[in-house]
Nucleic acid binder design. Structure first.
Lengths: 165, 165
DNA sequence: TATTGTTATACTCTATAACTATA
DNA sequence: TATAGTTATAGAGTATAACAATA
């Protein structure tokens, strides 16, 4: 069944998500919008991870960089709100970026908070990441036409509660 | 800004994901199919968790129960394959179900493996969970017509690589 | 009093690798 | 030799709560 390993050591099977396994009855899962989204998300995440395995980046970190680039001077608390994570989580993300020389914490008017900015190197790197992520995004959606992609994005948007709702 | 707490202790802000924050420029994230899916997934997960907070269930565990119910006698390794997680992860999931009296490990022909089955109580509980999950699923997709939901599911399906691809 | 960033801590999820018993 | 289940362990990720500096 499985391909033989070269050495004598028995290793664990590589973990991989298959949205549909032959012969399995998924019952109600096939009718749930939520499960369809989850299923797609797992597939997409796997391709993202494989595509950017060499880089020290994740969907989370990529999003953070994009948000900082396009909202320069944003505070850590605001970034936490945008990402939907705790403030303490942003600390480690920014620490990592700062160590990597991608992001800088600048002083701001309110001396309690930092003003986040991409460094020149951060901008350069993000440009590269963007190219790779766009490639990845085109690949995972290659079965869809441009119109279908737009339609899909619009339908998905309707699943997210509006700010005032 | 924030609502005052009653006591004197300063607590952390509750973490919550808002798909779109006023005044934030999401740049390329708005064009990515992958980010649209992720965004929806976070919103949906939050509603799922809130809806089933009282029950000891997660999307992962719910899916496992459904798969076991509709594929009685399935092995742990097969279940791991279906869920896209490591075999070791299934052990703890089934341990928990077994402790809760929802699932039983039966002996199978191949004495290395177990044959998983829902108990009577497991079936009863799952019936309840299904009702709640369906409510939740209708709620998160309430902005979509039946036809739109079907369309969305079909489009999402196209994002998942086919078994042979 | 409230807020920002920070730290300490804990909990969940998950993967990897090694072990055992079977095949 | 290979596979099923198990265990031990480690690494992410994330939340909560408390603290110092500042508002």
């Amino acid at each position: 069944m499985a391909v033989s390993k070269r050495g004598a050591e028995a290793k664990s099977d590589p973990v991989h998500f298959n949205a549909r396994i032959e012969g399995i009855d998924y019952d109600v899962l096939d009718d749930l919008v939520g499960y369809a989204v989850r299923r797609a998300q797992l597939s997409i995440y796997e391709d993202f991870a494989a595509t950017l395995a060499a880089e020290d980046i994740t969907p989370q970190r990529f999003s953070s960089l994009v948000i900082i680039e396009n909202n320069p001077g944003i505070s850590q608390t605001k970034l936490a709100e945008v990402m939907g994570i705790a403030r303490s989580g942003v600390v480690s993300i920014i620490d990592r970026f700062e160590k990597g020389g991608l992001v800088e914490r600048h002083a701001s008017d309110d001396r309690r908070s930092y003003s986040l900015h991409l460094t020149r190197d951060g901008k350069r790197q993000l440009k590269r990441y963007k190219k790779t992520v766009l490639d990845h995004d085109h690949r995972i959606a290659q079965a869809l036409s441009g119109a279908e992609k737009k339609l899909l994005r619009d339908l998905l948007k309707k699943l997210c509660p509006l700010p005032g709702a």
